[in-house]
Structure formats: structure tokens, C-alpha cells
């Protein structure tokens, strides 16, 4: 019982980077902008989140702002190169991925220099919700987390409402399904693509900042460890919808927590097998779900109104 509570609590805690990054990916994809730079944007978000907080004397808010800002800049770059310059989305995504990866290690070296022991920043405090956190079991599992856990849940529900219950959300989805039709109805396709790519980038940057701010208190090279790539898989089999993204994140986080718990539990399997599990499980799940999931019709393509056919 005790270990179940811990497991569920940790799963919710580890869900956040997946939720934020996948919602960001989903949002961009809904207007047809397919971001594949998650790993790089998360790394640079983690790096700048750490640096920002460190330079501001441990201010979490500054760190988060820095990560969100740099994520937004990467989103803007993606939107500009693909929507305005109509360059290949994968190629640009890969370039941004590399630049993000490079910057993530370069910036700490320039700002902090090489030190013997890594400086630490304070990690996010838990904010138990009054009364609700007193409920046995559920109180610990659901209602005594850091603020970003609540934010991830509220964001997911908010995005669902926005995309499927508002006029703007409908317009935005139409851009990702058939920009030709959307354009003919007077919808500004470029504006929608820019907006979603930028906000999506911000969310992905924030997802990266979560890692030093909650898990480690410091930035280490390559600390995202493939979560960015797992996010793409997650977004695909969540069918590019906000609520399934939330549930899917729980699954990913559960696997991540389980593989670490087993490792710490001293079970007689080499730990390397356990560390393979998230990636193998993802591939397995994709085998069974990939064909059935819905994908925005125009995903990964660039719209040129002067071209006759798509």
C-alpha cells in the first residue's frame, strides 16, 4: 500500500515533462507544423532554466521564464523557416535539434565555466492543496505536488476545451486538416501556424526546465535522455488530442518510474535491461496503436497558397 502510494505519486510527478512537451507538439501539429526538435528544445530549456535560476540567486520564476522564452524562440524559428520560407520541416527540425543540443552545453560552460562540483539550484516546492491534501491516499497521490503538476493537468483540460469547444480552436484545427479550405474561408493560416509553433515551443522549453528544477537541481549534458523522442511517439498514439496526451503521459511516466524503482529495489536483473524498457515499450505500443490513430491531415506539410494542388 505504502509503495503503491509512492509509485502513483512519483508517476504523477514524472508525467509533467511528457505532458508539457507532448501538448506543445500536439498544438503545433494541429496546424500542420510537425516539430521534431523536442530533444534539443528540452535540453536548451533545461540548460537555460538552470542558468536563469542560478544567476538570479535561485529564483525559480526567472529560470522558468528563461526556458519558456528560449523555447518560444525555437518555435518561432521553426515557424519562420517552414511557414514563411517553406523549407522542409524535418530538415529544419533536425537543424534546430542540433543547435539546441549544442547550445545546451555551450551556455553553462560560457556562463559558469568548468567547475569541480556542479552548482545547485533550489528545486520546486510542493504546494499541498488545503483540505484536499488531507484526504487519505488521494491527498498524497493527487493533491500535494509542485505547481507544475497542477499546471500540466489544467493545461490539458484547457487545451481540450480550446480546441474542441471554441471557434478559434476549430479554425486552428482546420488549418492542420486542410489549409486550402481554411484559407478560402478567410482564416489566416500563417498566423495560426506561427502562434501554435511558438506556444508549442514554449511548452517544450518548460518541459525541459522541469528536469533540473524538480529532479536534479542542476543541468547535466544530455539529461533529457530521449524523453523528447518519446514525446513524439506519445503524441502520435494519443491521436494528437489533449486528453489522450494526458493519459498517455501517465503511462510513459509509469514505465519510467517503474524502471527506476526496480533498479533501486535491488532486483537481480542487470539495470541496463530496465533502462531499455521505456524505449522498447514505446515501440511495442506503437506497433499496436499506430495504424488506428488519427493524424492531422496536413501534418508535416507546408502550405503555399500560390500552388495549385497540395
Amino acid at each position: 500500500m505504502e509503495s503503491l502510494v509512492t509509485f502513483l505519486r512519483l508517476t504523477l510527478l514524472s508525467m509533467v515533462p511528457f505532458v508539457l512537451a507532448a501538448q506543445g507538439t500536439m498544438l503545433g501539429g494541429r496546424t500542420g507544423v510537425f516539430n521534431v526538435a523536442q530533444e534539443g528544445i528540452m535540453l536548451v530549456g533545461a540548460s537555460l532554466g538552470f542558468i536563469g535560476s542560478y544567476l538570479a540567486g535561485g529564483s525559480t520564476l526567472v529560470g522558468i521564464a528563461a526556458a519558456v522564452l528560449v523555447g518560444g524562440i525555437f518555435g518561432l524559428a521553426l515557424a519562420y523557416f517552414t511557414t514563411t520560407l517553406k523549407m522542409n520541416q524535418f530538415v529544419i527540425g533536425l537543424s534546430l535539434l542540433f543547435i539546441g543540443t549544442g547550445l545546451s552545453t555551450l551556455i553553462p560552460k560560457l556562463v559558469i565555466g568548468v567547475t569541480l562540483s556542479q552548482p545547485l539550484i533550489p528545486t520546486l516546492q510542493d504546494l499541498p492543496i488545503p483540505l484536499l491534501s488531507q484526504i487519505p491516499f488521494l491527498g498524497t497521490v493527487l493533491f500535494s505536488h509542485n505547481i507544475l503538476v497542477y499546471f500540466a493537468i489544467v493545461l490539458s483540460i484547457g487545451l481540450w476545451y480550446f480546441l474542441f469547444r471554441t471557434q478559434l480552436g476549430l479554425e486552428l484545427r482546420s488549418v492542420g486538416e486542410n489549409p486550402n479550405a481554411a484559407d478560402s474561408l478567410g482564416i489566416n493560416t500563417s498566423k495560426h501556424r506561427y502562434m501554435t509553433a511558438i506556444i508549442g515551443g514554449m511548452l517544450i522549453g518548460l518541459a525541459g526546465a522541469y528536469l533540473p528544477m524538480v529532479y536534479t537541481g542542476t543541468f547535466t549534458e544530455g539529461m533529457v535522455k530521449g524523453r523528447g523522442w518519446l514525446t513524439i511517439a506519445l503524441t502520435f498514439f494519443a491521436g494528437w488530442s489533449p486528453l489522450p496526451v494526458l493519459y498517455g503521459s501517465l503511462f510513459f511516466a509509469g514505465i519510467e518510474v517503474a524502471s527506476y524503482r526496480f533498479q533501486a529495489g535491488g532486483i537481480a536483473i542487470p539495470y541496463q535491461y530496465l533502462l531499455m524498457v521505456p524505449y522498447l515499450a514505446t515501440i511495442l505500443v506503437m506497433m499496436f496503436t499506430f495504424r488506428k490513430t488519427r493524424v492531422p491531415g496536413f501534418l508535416g506539410n507546408n502550405y503555399d497558397r500560390e500552388k495549385r494542388s497540395l
Partner: peptide
């Protein structure tokens, strides 16, 4: 996986890199 299930090859080929890191360690 691409042939049989039509799964995006960028993703699967990348994820297998992370598996290989563990195999070489093993």
C-alpha cells in the same frame, strides 16, 4: 516497422539508439 505497421521511421530508429546504449554497457 515502417513496412508492416507504417510507423514513422525517424522515431523508431532514434529510439533504438537508446536501446543500443544499454546493450553496449551490458
Amino acid at each position: 516497422l515502417l513496412y508492416k505497421f507504417n510507423i514513422n521511421e525517424i522515431l523508431t530508429s532514434m529510439l533504438l539508439n537508446f536501446v543500443s546504449f544499454q546493450i553496449i554497457d551490458l
